[in-house]
Amino acid sequence: MKTINQLTKDCLNKNFNEFYDEQKILFKAKGNFYDASKLDLKKIPEKISKFKGVLVMLDKENNIKKSSAHGKFTRDKETKKIKKYFSPFNPIKGRWTPFFISLEHNKIAFGYQQSVAISLAFGIKFVNNQEPTPRDKVYDLLNKKTPNEIDKLPIGDQKTMIASKCGRKVVEDLHPNWDKIFKEVHNLEDFKLHFFYIDEESPYTPSFFKQIIDTAARK
């Protein structure tokens, strides 16, 4: 792997294809690059089932549609010390925001529209700066609190609580309506999914490598 300075210079000065291909070779040499189309779903490597690093989604013309970084060094809320380990994400189990991948339905979707999903899932309307309605459906959904307690909450808090109920499983079950919930829905085979594995010991963080990839692609 290259140093932070060399990687930065390369992404600024090399053309995208040259830069990207070189990174694939360097990561592959260390066993840290995976192309989703070549994975055997019955024998998923641990570096993918517990993924840390940068996931790059490219269209058929090799244009980057989106990249996402997984793994940050953060402070512990209690001790305020820096946590030594990243929280890995499992792309097979799934992730639904800001993009949605479903291997089961062979789809990849971008542009999640929360208010549409909530309306379809729970029949609740989200309108800017207004209380979510109808109220009886809100009370049913947030039934750990009494209607009186819910009514006293700020609108933003009510919306946050409702949104948290609309998780991956709920969105997955709305499969026939994905074209309404997402701005774009594509077949998975129309995209390449590249996994660049970067762990805590790497010479740079996933967030930095995502910026490097995005910069190289933006030129």
């Binding site: 060094f73 740079y204 930095f208 910026q211 910069t215």
Partner: peptide, 17 residues
């Protein structure tokens, strides 16, 4: 070309790593 996100991430990585 040189985004604020890239500059921030570059410097924080230089410091931490």
């Amino acid at each position: 070309l040189v985004s604020p996100e890239l500059l921030e991430s570059y410097l924080l990585n230089k410091l931490y790593k």
